[in-house]
Design a protein around this nucleic acid. Sequence first.
DNA 1: ATAGGGTTAG
Length: 656
Amino acid sequence: MLLSTCNSCSRPAKTVEQKAMSFLQHCNKLHHLYQLHAFIIKTSLDCNKFIIAKFLRRFFSSSSTSSEALPYTRLLFDSIPYPDTFIWNTMIRAYLDAHNPRESISLFFQMQLQLRIPVDSFSLSLVVQACGRSHDTWNGFRVHTQILKLGFSSDLFVQTALIEMYSKFGDMVIARKILDEMNEPDLVSYNVLLSEYVKAGEIELARHLFDNMPNKDLVSWNTMIHGYAAHGSVASARKLFDACIQRDLVSWSSMISAYAKSRQSNEALRLFHDMQLAKVMPDGITMVSVLSACGDIGALGMGKMVHEYIERSGIKIDVKLGTSLVDMYAKCGDIDNSLVVFSKMDVKDVLTWSSMIMGLANHGLGEVALDYFLKMTEEGINPNDITFVGVLTACSHVGLISKGWAFFTSMNDVYGVTPKLEHYGCMVDILGRAGHLQDARELIKSMPFAPDAIVWRTLLSACRVHKNVELAEEAILNLMELEPDDDGNYVLLSNIYAQAKMWSNVVNVRRMMRSRSIIKVPGSSSIEVDNTVHEFIAGDKSHPKSKEIYEMLAEMHDRLVHVGYKPLTSTVLQDLNDQAKEEVLSHHSEKLAIAFGLLNTVPGSPIRIVKNLRVCEDCHLAIKLASAIYDRKIIVRDRNRFHHFVEGSCSCGDFW
DNA sequence: ATAGGGTTAG
């Protein structure tokens, strides 16, 4: 069976030991290891401690994601009659690798105190790491004393482990002292302290150490790059990245991640391109950041290409990579593929489920999202605060008031998750959307947090939909205090006055904006055609195909008017006559992008637009009609959510 | 023994 086929190395194995060792090198599936175990028992190799220790290690590392591996490893360990120091160390390491340092510590003391098995420098350095990682200062100091007594205090590995331990205890001074007092610290000792400085956010100390290290390798450079990305500035990280003589996979991934995390997504994708030109092969970790950048700008084509590359190159889709695929597809408007990836994942954690629930909620599929929440809890995954943001968003987007309240109260009562400001924000949205404006106002008053701008804007937005000028004025007063320079607030207020036909107030808002030098951020919409993103801003004439786009726009306008469309000129802020206002509206960025999409995509195929701001009411109306006239599904991602326009109506139910 | 990864209200 398998054991006879595993000799993929050139020389045939001679002895059973060699056979087993050779198989150990090549097998990486759990069931292969079960087979190997059977083989080991059958051939009495289970008396060979070296083989068993190797086996334990291999067994464990091959399947550290699988929950059955560690108990099985332990079973194996427990069945060994007289395990020696080496075997004990292996087991201790297995627990350390499995993020269960407490068990490592417990094994260490069992081995030493109960069974009197001698400990060596490996046992000590492992348990020191375990103490550090579990913040067990009590045992940490205890072990350190033993190290001194047993005469291991000048062992390189033990000292390096101590540097890590004291750093994890928060004592960077002691950690530094240990390094300084080492007779022959090696590069790893320096790198460990460097990395711990970074983890502690001590970026200045890290840089000082980095500059004064006797040697540096790629690990040192990469640690420093990541350090700047995480705690300093992306620009400093980039400076270092550019100064590198050598760059490997980790250097590129760190830099791409730095851009992705700071939402400089286009720069992240540009760097990913450069990485390929430099012929450095990306791995799953690189792709997580690349996919995050794709999701941020809604680059579906690029995201799909990355997904195909992952499949083609056999990169394993683990929980994190799977989650970023789920998230990317959802954020790019392709909720179907998001669901497909989700269903194919064999291991899902709370982040995976939360991403899926949030994705469904943002696409207006609230009921489905709640089904998924139920499935998640049935599978024994505990929801966290972010899961509930998704759950409440789901309720809000489909108008489930009582369910929303029920989930909100269950957060604390059932799941032990304390509601945060975000959750109150969701409730304000749920209530406001349903027209329960006073309840929403009361909730803001009674919540245990000071309301922030988002909360007030949520209320303001509900006031617009339900035409409550009075409450809107209260909300705007608070907003002006919190965000006096945000143009969006003035636009929203002006729209509310316009809707109420309070024209003099509209004029006042306009004056206020001018006197405070508030400039309206131009709307911009992008559409991806053949993996190229085309971005349009309102009134844009810079596109090479501008002439055709505006001809298309004129045709669209005529056909819209033909089915009864009337431009909602009241929302235009500029002081213009009606005809000019109509022109402003008809040149809104999403309309330009849609015209471009109609011209450059296959008839009948969906058109996907990503907008930087919220869709205006006029565009929302126009796109609804256009979806029917041109028989196209039009999917618009705006600042808040997705709008799926199909056959004249929108998935948001006209509330957004 | 040391470096890079996923979800967050409008």
